[in-house]
Amino acid sequence: MIDVQHLTKRYGRVTAVDDVSFRVEKGEILGFLGPNGAGKTTTMRVLTGYMPPTEGRALVAGHDILEAPLEAKRRTGYLPETPPLYPEMTVRDYLMFVATINGLASAERRRRVETAMERTRVADMASRHCGKLSKGYRQRVGLAQAILHNPDVLILDEPTAGLDPKQIHETRDLIKSLGGDHTVILSTHILPEVAQTCSRVVIINKGRVVAIDTPENLTARLRGAETMFVQVDSAGADATPVIAAVPGVTGVTIAARRDEQASYEVASERGHDIRRQLAAAIVTQGWGLLELRPLRMSLEEIFLQLTTEENAGGAEVPRA
């Protein structure tokens, strides 16, 4: 559905996007993740035909964005970083205008506008002036504008920015329901959002792609070893030798110690579940096993690790 090939965009001497390539299949929801200034907005602006790439090319819904811009744009809905509203127009008039320039037939327009307002829950603001809306409502009208003509491809630049928690939840549900018949690219800074809504993630830093994968794989690939968190009531004794003796354990560190209890982080070989033996070893010592859980690296940590890495270039995911 979307095919980006060696895309580079320079603003004068600043390279905002540097040789980015990726594909998005029909029905996928792709998350675009990266720190401020990474080049997310710039990539989206190229994909929507707002600005041409300096090098490389992009196909959207089967049409080259430079060679057949009208065809590509007709099949794309776009929510820019700042919702593009005309302050002096009412929400309904504004959506009617966007419906018209999207080429919808006049018989269809009203129905589509009403549907879009229902889906994004702005119907109660239909006759309010856009300039008098709160930030969250502006964002939602912007979203309504993007889905109005039922486009094949949706490009959403930080769709949940400025929304309250309830709205974030509803918007995510809306985006998830759009995936399936629509292809969605969304950018965000909120990591759990990516894990919850996206089928694949592109992590981008300083204009370069650092990683592309599913959220699950990304989490898994980054952990070279499995780590367990164990809390033991050993009546003051050091449990380290006992834990280290369990087959498969490669390292033990004391994470915290308080009174009779201590907690340990236990590293083990990958794909080797040590939980049963570990529990048995502790219990046979007569100690109390207070807690035992796998330590997973959160997407947050992965993100920080990938984007703060020196020479973050290259699509290869560094091992933890």
Binding site: G49, P69, T76, Y78, P80, P83, P84, L85, I101
Partner: peptide
Amino acid sequence: RSGTFELLLTRPLT
């Protein structure tokens, strides 16, 4: 200034 130009330029208009 207001950003609506981005709307016009990304809609199927010449």
